[in-house]
Design a protein around this nucleic acid. Structure first.
Lengths: 287, 287
DNA sequence: CGAGGCCTTGAACGAAATCAAAGTCAGTGG
DNA sequence: CCACTGACTTTGATTTCGTTCAAGGCCTCG
């Protein structure tokens, strides 16, 4: 891996670099194709030496900065090497909808391929280290390496599948279930990167979680409190501890029409009192 | 174009054909690559003669039949040449969520690339004529024709952008606005295929529309009635006439939090009558 | 210490879901 | 031809989950 110093502003002004505001990092400035493949959340493959001689640039983005914005000409994907971001679309009224919270191993920018300009914006929620992947270089490599090509098609398809699942999830689950699953999914993603899946820090505000889940920030807050009261999690500011992942997994809405015959009260397992805990979670825990 | 007769069941059993239940059509049995490119809802390109000598097979699917189902091994995309379909995902409770209503020019099956098996199912809502596009053939051609490759990446990206828009739309719009836009979008798609954009037949049930829009079938029915009462459309069973596209376009929710400072009354623009149409659509028509 | 985000909690409201009951239509078979 | 069946649709009444509005508390950072 080389270690060079680049005046990013100059290079980028010259059109060799992204139009965003990222700057090259200090330490590992370049990554080989093989490094990149290993980083992806996808079964890795091996490519030959020769193609590892043209490494890809790392860019650093500070907390709060934009990686790309809506309408900006598309030229590259970004692979997250470190840090935490959000991707956002704005509707015609100006309200924002968060699409994803990318982290290490995630690719950003697929929506720009169509029409050659980004339709969403990506914002760093922490200081980030991203690998800059010019799309023409990527596709050129794909023509040489069918396995890599399969990887790229696969990654785009995966994005699609996630969005499909998101759509289905949103209209099928209650607020409680959505928040519960959000926490679980986040934990699993942290776990994939070597962190704890049970104890972690949210990097985003309640409002951002709400936007992602299609809920108001108040509902998110209330639900977190409710899950905490139920003992499934502990909440301290943005620190979350998951005490009972199984309960969170099982948390669901009384399905639209089914399970209406289920016993209406099953939360009182321990039955600490005759009081049916009226407010609490009107959800059902299926064993 | 060749005109041959094939025993589809035999060929498919031999692995040369899709596992679905489609059968080759009678008339135009094959399409050239160039035909296919022209059919796509994407700026067309031109490919040289040689690659038009290996044409793609057409398959006929009867109303109600499955093109592919969840979990079925992925091997191909389908391009709709004629007919009307729905793509559906089922959640863990068994409830179905409609993702799209593909018609002429639309591609089906991208979700299968990841994991090499379909995560959704596609069902014919009318008799259909689909072009069977084995994915390996497609990608092989893409390696030879960078423009075609761009088309394919672009089509996948477009899918992604649509889903993103869908997510944003669903949480930002009222039932009225969602139905209104659904009708407009459907009309435009018919128009692209040479039909009227103002007078057409819904090919799907209220329930399916509801599933697509994240609404109950009752809400869809009520909303159609309300739009009709408001004079924006006429509804006769599944026949829809759009009388006032502009009104439908302008129909929207009072934005969640924004525009609360906007004048609360701005519908009286044209002010055809002093009567504020009390119940009707409590929506706002922005000029 | 003060200001401004961010978060929590309560109360009331409201959009759409759910429940319920007719009504319409196409196709079937007597 | 017409009654019958079953799927689809409409409409009404009621319920409910989540939003909106409101107020106060907490934490951070300058």
């Amino acid at each position: 891996m080389h270690t060079i110093t680049v005046n990013s502003q100059a290079e980028r002004a010259a059109g060799a670099m992204p139009a965003g505001c990222g700057t090259p990092r200090g330490q590992p400035l370049w990554s080989s194709l093989q490094d990149i493949i290993k980083l992806l959340n996808i079964p890795p493959i091996t490519v030959d030496e020769s193609d590892n001689n043209q490494p890809f640039l790392h860019l650093a983005f500070k907390h709060g900065h934009h990686i790309h914005s809506v309408g900006q000409p598309f030229d590259a994907l970004y692979l997250v090497n470190a840090g935490f971001l959000k991707t956002v679309v704005s509707d015609e009224f100006g309200s924002e909808h968060i699409l994803n919270f990318p982290m290490r191993g995630d690719l950003i920018g697929f929506d720009g391929v169509y029409r050659q300009s980004y339709t969403s914006e990506a914002v760093a929620l922490s200081d980030c280290d991203l690998i800059y992947l010019p799309f023409y270089r990527l596709t050129a490599l794909c023509r040489k390496h069918p396995e890599l090509e399969a990887l790229l098609y696969g990654a785009m398809s995966q994005e699609l599948v996630r969005k499909q699942a998101m759509i289905a999830t949103r209209s099928a689950l209650t607020a409680e279930a959505r928040v519960a699953r959000f926490l679980l999914a986040l934990g699993e993603r942290y776990a994939r990167n070597g962190y704890s899946s049970n104890l972690f820090n949210l990097r985003m505000t309640r409002s951002e979680i709400g936007s992602y889940l299609g809920l108001s920030l108040e509902t998110v807050s209330r639900t977190l409190s409710a899950l905490a009261v139920a003992g499934m999690i502990d909440v301290d500011q943005r620190t979350i501890r998951i005490n009972n992942p199984d309960a969170l997994t099982a948390l669901r809405r009384l399905p639209p029409s089914a399970s209406r015959h289920a016993r209406p009260d099953c939360s009182g397992a321990g039955s600490k009192s005759a009081v049916p805990q009226p407010e609490q979670l009107h959800a059902v825990l299926l064993d």
